[in-house]
Design a binder for these strands. Structure first.
Length: 297
DNA sequence: ACCCAGGCGGGCG
DNA sequence: CGCCCGCATGGG
C-alpha cells in the first residue's frame, strides 16, 4: 500500500493523525485555526491560506482542500506533515521496548512537521525556560502585531512576519508580546537572520552544518538549534533534550538517576539511530502526558 | 505563597 | 572545559 495518494482536490493519508500532530507542541502557530470537531484546519504558507478539512482515521484519512492553487497546496501538505515518510518502517525501528510501544500505540499517526525555518527559529527562542501555553500566546501576539493580513475568498489570516518585516520591531515590542528576557534575543535574531545568516540557504545542507550555523544566533544554543534542525529543516537525526525528554529518559531507562545531556544524546543515537528525532517526539509527548496524569513510570 | 516551564549566556574554578 | 547562576512572566 502506498504511503499517500494525491487526488484531484486533496491528499489521501496513511498512518496520519492530525489531532495528535497539531496538539503535540510543535510550531505552534497554526493552532489558531484548527477545529477538532469539524476536522477543519487552515494555516498560512507562502502567503497563501491553506483551507482544509481532514476526515477519516489515523490508518486511512484524507485532506480535502478548498480554493485555488491546489497543486501547490497539496505539495505543502505533503511536505509539512511529512506524509512521504514510511511510518511503518520508522515504527519498526523506534519501538525498541515497552515504553516506546505504548507511546506509539497512544499517539499512532502523530508526525513530525516541517515548518518555515525563521518561524521555527523565533518559536524556539521564545520556548526557552518557558511553557507551551505561554509560548503559543507570545508567538500569536507577535503574529497579530507584525504579520501581514492575507485575504483569500472569505478567509482572512495573518502571515508569520519575516525577519525583514520585524526590522522595526523593538525589544520593547517583543516584551509587550510577553517574551520577557528573550526579547533581546528576538531582536538580535531578526537582525542577524536578515543581514548575516540566510536561513533559507541552509535548506539543502546537512544536519551538522545547519546546527552549527544556527548556533551563531545569540539566544540559540544546543537544544534550540536541535529543535530548529528537526522541525524547521526536517533533520530526523536531531534529538532535542528538554526537561521532559530528560526526565522521561532518566525514569524509563536509568531508574531516575541523573544523567548528562551529552550522555543521553549518545544513548539515543545508539538506540534509535537516524530516526531519533521521531523517537524524541513520541518520548516527549508520552512522557509529558503521563506526568500530567500523574502516572508513575 | 511557591514552583515550574520544549534553556541560554556569562562567569567562575 | 564543566558547573552554576540569574533570568521575565503567567499559570497551576
Amino acid at each position: 500500500m502506498s504511503l499517500y495518494k494525491l487526488t484531484p482536490n486533496g491528499v489521501e493519508t496513511r498512518l496520519f493523525d492530525l489531532r495528535h500532530t497539531l496538539e503535540s507542541a510543535q510550531p505552534l502557530t497554526f493552532f489558531s485555526d484548527y477545529h477538532e470537531r469539524k476536522g477543519t484546519l487552515s494555516y498560512v504558507a507562502d502567503k497563501r491560506i491553506i483551507d482544509t478539512k481532514f476526515s477519516g482515521t489515523a490508518d486511512a484519512g484524507r485532506f480535502t482542500i478548498k480554493g485555488s492553487a491546489l497543486a501547490a497546496k497539496k505539495k505543502d501538505i505533503l511536505h509539512r506533515f511529512r506524509l512521504t515518510d514510511d511510518m511503518e518502517d520508522i515504527y519498526s525501528r523506534i519501538i525498541t521496548d515497552q515504553f516506546m510501544q505504548d507511546a506509539v500505540r497512544n499517539y499512532r499517526g502523530m508526525r513530525l512537521t516541517i515548518n518555515d525555518p525563521w518561524e521555527t527559529t523565533l518559536c524556539y527562542i521564545v520556548s526557552q525556560y518557558n511553557n507551551v501555553k505561554k509560548i503559543r500566546g507570545t508567538v500569536l501576539k507577535i503574529i497579530n502585531r507584525f504579520g501581514t493580513e492575507i485575504i483569500e475568498g472569505k478567509k482572512t489570516a495573518r502571515s508569520f512576519p519575516t525577519s525583514e518585516e520585524l526590522a522595526d520591531a523593538t525589544e520593547r515590542d517583543f516584551r509587550e508580546c510577553g517574551a520577557g528576557f528573550r526579547a533581546k534575543y528576538l531582536k538580535s535574531a531578526a537582525d542577524f537572520c536578515t543581514n548575516n545568516l540566510n536561513l533559507y540557504k541552509l535548506q539543502n545542507k546537512g544536519y551538522a552544518e545547519i546546527k552549527e550555523s544556527l548556533m551563531e544566533i545569540d539566544g540559540v544554543g544546543d537544544k534550540v538549534a536541535d529543535c530548529i534542525a528537526l522541525l524547521g529543516y526536517g533533520k530526523s537525526e536531531a534529538f532535542p533534550i528538554d526537561v521532559w525528554v530528560k526526565r522521561t529518559l532518566e525514569r524509563v531507562y536509568f531508574k531516575g538517576k541523573d544523567k548528562k545531556i551529552k550522555y543521553l544524546h549518545k544513548f539515543a543515537e545508539h538506540k534509535w539511530g537516524n530516526d531519533m528525532g521521531y523517537a524524541q517526539q513520541y518520548l516527549f509527548w508520552q512522557g509529558r502526558q503521563m506526568e500530567k496524569q500523574n502516572v508513575r513510570l
